[in-house]
Nucleic acid binder design. Structure first.
Length: 507
RNA sequence: GCCCCGUUCGUCUAGCCCGGUCCAGGACACCUCUCUUUCAAGGAGGAAACAGGGGUUCGAAUCCCCUACGGGGUACCA
């Protein structure tokens, strides 16, 4: 099996593209086949610098790597269509020789005129086809001499000669048999006047030359598949299998998700940060939001595909093992950001701390927080991950560690202090100084004992001690917090608190 | 407009191919309760859907037809 992902570098890759790449990748890995990246940059006017690197980087972040491509090479190089330009012209001329295509010399104005003329005559959407081509300037209507001289002196395109009265049927791996009648199809341009091929020609030629066995792409290509089928036929080449994936729909109104949706939707549509080279506009990606690649991939896999069982959290390896085209759904899927977050949370909780450590450390350093050992940071991650959905929330949850409570406390929090306990704080501190074991479970035991000795339930004093120790009213287990803070720091915070609230500020 | 594809809880979906086991299952989100020092997480429960209409059949979410709606395509863009 050989599959490919063939984006055009017209901007950042959005999550729909990532999903298409993912499905291809999953299948290739599962079947031990190859996964190829081909850059379809045949429209020089839409070329965006940096887009190709962005596509590779984004997929690589997701754990999706290619076996062949412009960045890694391969037996079918080059993998950029702009670098294969001459090739397509040869194949286009071959089709003309075989009578499956023809040359056309119409200018843009002439095409427009034709369309408005036929529209005025009552045709709804005039196409360059069996009926209209006889009115146009092409090698079918012009005398051979004129064609030859125009070919030498004028720009021209090569158009596919759409056969009349044929039913084109093909099998789609997801949808089953699909059929079109050639009467609905037009004479598509195969080779543009600048010598570049259109998608249709380049795609078919390259898929054949590169030995692609399965074409897995978005549903927006379903309508042009009959053309592709006819092209394979005209070349006399064996056709790959086709699978058209349901589209990712916008969560709000209608239409498919597009690059322009940016972060206007309230959630990222790009995997990585992207800065538009023309406008300078910056869009943040899933990575910057604090998603794990594991989470993004998992959610995307489930958008339009269902494994059958009840399991929803999968690693890449599990996805590779279980993915199959026949469990891909036919209807478009709306992106659900909340569910994406939930899936990410599940991964955040399951991944080994070592995997999270470098990611959190990077955030830690970006915020210029005080230096910390791997061991300490791992402890903090363990404390915080259970209450985080996105990576940066881990930092928020352990704020107590790098920020001492600011005293006096805000009034709203002061109101929650237990006045009886405040008075006993000096005694409490004195007892703590006597402690020799400083470890979560032991602290819990000791604290409960102490509460009992004071004739209080531990529930009566814990909220206050939490406030004293962290300045916050919610967070991880207080015993665990004490354990990571260390005895000295806890004593220090108690001292600070007592000095502010000890005598003068009765609450 | 025309062509193609689609349509199960708000969302992602199971079930559909091979009619009965489906007064339709799971998950996210929502609500209630529970656990708990707190916030989460966890546990228990709740509300929530077969687009509509015709057929076929003893019986249809499942098969057929029509309609409606949604999406895609209709470029010298991919």
């Amino acid at each position: 099996m050989r599959v490919r992902f063939a984006p055009s570098p017209t901007g950042p890759l959005h999550i729909g593209g990532v999903r298409t790449a993912l499905y291809n990748f999953l299948l290739a890995r599962q079947k031990g086949g190859q996964f190829i990246l081909r850059i379809e940059d045949t429209d020089q006017s839409r070329y965006v610098p940096g887009a190709e690197a962005y596509i590779i980087d984004s997929l690589s972040w997701c754990g999706i790597e290619f076996d062949e491509g412009p960045h890694v090479g391969g037996p079918h190089a080059p993998y950029r269509q702009s670098e294969r330009k001459e090739l397509y012209a040869d194949y286009a001329h071959l089709l003309v020789e075989r009578g499956a295509a023809y040359y056309a010399f119409d200018t843009e104005q002439e095409l427009e005129e034709m369309r408005s003329r036929f529209e005025a005559a009552g045709m709804v959407a005039p196409q360059y086809n069996a009926v209209t081509r006889s009115y146009m300037k092409n090698s079918l209507t012009l005398p051979p001499d004129e064609v030859r001289s125009r070919l030498r002196s004028e720009p021209y395109v090569v158009r596919f000669l759409m056969p009349r009265g044929r039913e084109v049927r093909f099998f789609d791996e997801i949808r089953g048999w699909v059929s079109f009648h050639t009467r609905e199809l037009d004479d598509k341009v195969l080779l543009k006047s600048d010598g570049m091929p259109t998608y249709h020609l380049a795609n078919v030629v390259d898929d054949h030359l590169m030995g692609i066995t399965h074409v897995i792409r978005g549903e927006e290509w379903l309508s042009s598949t009959p053309l592709h089928v006819l092209l394979y036929e005209a070349f006399g080449w064996e056709m790959p299998k086709f699978a058209h994936l349901p589209l990712l729909l916008r969560p709000d109104g209608g239409g498919k998700l597009s690059k322009r949706d940016g972060d206007r939707l309230g959630f990222p549509v790009f995997p990585l940060r992207w800065q538009d080279p023309h406008t300078g506009e910056v869009s943040l990606g899933y990575r910057e939001r604090g998603f794990l690649p594991e989470g993004v991939i998992n959610y995307l896999a489930l958008l339009g595909w269902h494994p059958g069982g009840e399991q929803e959290v999968f690693t890449l390896e599990e996805l590779v093992a279980r993915f199959s085209l026949d469990r891909v759904s036919k209807a478009g899927a709306r992106f659900d950001y909340e569910k994406a977050r939930w899936i990410n949370q599940q991964h955040l909780r399951r991944l080994p701390v070592e995997r999270l450590l470098p990611l959190v450390r990077q955030l830690w350093e970006e915020r210029a927080l005080p230096s910390i050992s791997d061991d300490k940071l791992s402890q903090l991650i363990d404390l915080a991950r259970e209450r985080a959905t996105l990576l940066p929330e881990i930092l928020e949850a352990v704020r107590f560690f790098y920020m001492r409570p600011s005293l006096p406390l805000p009034e709203a929090l002061e109101a929650k202090l237990n006045p009886i306990l405040i008075e006993k704080l000096p005694d409490f501190l004195a007892e703590i100084r006597q402690l020799s074991v400083w470890e979560s479970a032991a602290l819990e035991g000791w604290l409960k004992e102490w509460a009992k000795s004071q004739g209080m339930g531990v529930g009566k004093l814990l909220p206050t001690i939490r406030l004293v120790s962290t300045g916050q009213e919610a967070g991880p287990s207080l015993y665990a917090i004490w354990a990571v803070l260390g005895k000295e720091e806890v004593e220090r915070r108690l001292e600070a608190f007592i000095s502010v609230y000890g005598v003068s500020r009765r609450v």
